[in-house]
């Protein structure tokens, strides 16, 4: 195993409890949480909307192609798009994309503050910067990313509808019948478990990369890249583990 990984894992584990120390001023943290919720939530709506439409549309087209002239009833298309979106594509795809958008932003924001001595300035004032800079982001992500994933699941179904009904492959009633068939509420639980886990991963990894950045603009760029790459890899590993644990 790469010793660098163990070093960073140990450093991360040591650093992490500092994030959850008592805030110096609850109101300041609250304001920061609201600001982050807006940035993460509203700021990511458009990209989530676009990818979700295509997730649903491509899933519908692909399965329509797979089903072909088989004996599987046509209404299954709605059922397949719905479950694919809820169980896998909405949480995983959305969070992979958010790791790129939100994660890199967090790493760059905190890393930039480190380089401009803003973090040192706050430390001198007596602010617990690990807590003030990371905790609001973490709370905001844990609230907003599941909301974005829910929206993504909803819009994916709409994307599937557009690709299959609006293009004339299937009828409205067939698609809707599929959407209403074989619904398993546990799948929604699984979606939220994934969304929350992925939100935690992408936020904490990105903040860690930004907080401990050293050097200049090149290193900051590298830290942003690492934030995305490591978040994506860990999200995929977590996806596998969650699927294994919650479906077996």
């Amino acid at each position: 195993m790469n010793p660098g990984f163990l070093y960073h894992f140990g450093k991360f584990v040591q650093w992490f409890p500092q994030i959850f120390s008592k805030p110096e001023n609850g109101r300041m943290y609250y304001k920061e949480v609201v600001r982050q919720m807006y940035d993460i939530g509203v700021g990511s709506l458009m990209i989530v909307f676009v990818i979700s439409i295509f997730i649903g549309a491509v899933t519908a087209i692909q399965f329509a192609y797979q089903l072909g002239n088989s004996f599987i009833p046509p209404y299954y298309i709605g059922y397949i798009v719905r479950d694919m979106a809820i169980i896998e594509l909405a949480p995983t795809f959305t969070c992979l994309v958010l790791a790129g958008k939100v994660g890199s932003n967090m790493a760059a924001e905190i890393g930039g503050m480190r380089q401009k001595e803003h973090i040192d300035a706050m430390e001198i004032m007596g602010v617990n910067t690990s807590s003030y800079l990371v905790m609001p982001k973490l709370i905001a992500a844990l609230i907003m990313i599941p909301v974005l994933v829910s929206i993504s699941a909803l819009i994916s179904n709409f994307g599937g509808y557009l690709a299959s009904v609006a293009t004339g492959y299937y009828s409205h009633s067939e698609y809707v019948q599929g959407l209403r068939s074989f619904f398993v509420p546990w799948n929604v639980v699984m979606m939220y478990v994934k969304a929350i886990s992925f939100a935690f991963i992408l936020t904490s990894v990105s903040c860690y990369q930004g907080y401990f950045v050293k050097g200049g603009s090149i290193e900051l760029g590298e830290a942003s890249t690492r934030a995305v790459v490591y978040s994506d890899i860990l999200i995929l590993i977590a996806d596998y583990i969650i699927a294994l644990v919650l479906t077996v």
Partner: peptide, 28 residues
């Protein structure tokens, strides 16, 4: 009890002058 002036000033770019100076008061 400590105040510090940094070489690069370390003023928060996204805050106004008033918000910068008020930050320690808001926080503590």
């Amino acid at each position: 009890d400590v105040g510090m002036l940094f070489q690069g000033n370390a003023l928060f770019d996204s805050m106004t002058v008033e918000e910068n100076i008020r930050f320690p008061l808001d926080m503590f």
